[in-house]
Deep mutational scan, measured.
Amino acid sequence: VSKLITEALSVSQERVGMSLVALKKALAAAGYDVEKNNSRIKLSLKSLVNKGILVQTRGTGASGSFKLS
């Protein structure tokens, strides 16, 4: 899941990052079952932020906008 998230964010052209909703849409378009794996998406977002791979530009927790650091 982390690999899919970083790939989706690297393609994004948004300056402020990608919102959680837009990220879920991009994952669904890539063929990932978002409804079934919603908790996995949130956990991997939090772990990527803690590792310093992603930066959360808006919001708290697993909601808001994210971009690559």
Results as ranks from 00 to 15, higher is better:
Ser2Trp: 00
Ser2Ala: 03
Ser2Leu: 03
Ser2His: 02
Ile5His: 00
Ile5Pro: 00
Thr6Asp: 05
Thr6His: 11
Glu7Lys: 09
Glu7Ala: 00
Ala8Ile: 12
Ala8Gly: 02
Ala8Phe: 06
Leu9Pro: 01
Ser10Ile: 04
Ser10Arg: 08
Ser10Trp: 01
Ser10Pro: 00
Val11Trp: 11
Val11Asn: 08
Ser12Met: 10
Gln13Arg: 10
Glu14Gln: 02
Glu14Pro: 02
Arg15Gln: 08
Arg15Val: 03
Arg15Cys: 06
Val16Asn: 14
Gly17Ser: 06
Ser19Asp: 14
Ser19Ala: 06
Leu20Lys: 06
Leu20Asp: 04
Val21Cys: 07
Val21Ile: 11
Ala22Leu: 03
Leu23His: 00
Lys25Leu: 00
Lys25Tyr: 00
Lys25Val: 01
Lys25Cys: 01
Lys25Phe: 00
Ala26His: 07
Leu27Val: 06
Leu27Asp: 01
Ala29Lys: 15
Ala29Asp: 10
Ala30Gln: 08
Ala30Arg: 14
Tyr32Pro: 06
Asp33Pro: 06
Val34Pro: 06
Glu35Ile: 09
Lys36Leu: 04
Asn38Ser: 14
Asn38Gly: 09
Asn38Thr: 15
Ser39Gln: 14
Ser39Ile: 00
Arg40Trp: 06
Ile41Arg: 02
Ile41Val: 05
Lys42Cys: 08
Lys42Pro: 01
Leu43Lys: 15
Leu43Pro: 02
Leu43Phe: 06
Ser44Pro: 01
Ser44Gln: 10
Leu45Tyr: 01
Lys46Thr: 06
Ser47Ala: 11
Ser47Ile: 01
Leu48Gln: 01
Leu48Phe: 03
Leu48Met: 10
Leu48Asn: 01
Leu48Tyr: 01
Asn50Arg: 10
Asn50Gln: 14
Gly52Val: 06
Gly52Lys: 09
Gly52Met: 06
Ile53Lys: 10
Ile53Tyr: 07
Val55Cys: 10
Val55Pro: 07
Gln56Thr: 14
Gln56Glu: 15
Thr57Ser: 12
Arg58Cys: 09
Gly59Ala: 08
Gly59Thr: 11
Gly59Ile: 15
Thr60Phe: 06
Thr60Ile: 09
Thr60His: 10
Gly61Glu: 12
Gly61Thr: 11
Ala62Ser: 11
Ala62Thr: 12
Ser63Ala: 12
Ser63Tyr: 06
Gly64Thr: 15
Ser65Arg: 05
Ser65Phe: 08
Leu68Lys: 11
Leu68Met: 10
Ser69Lys: 12
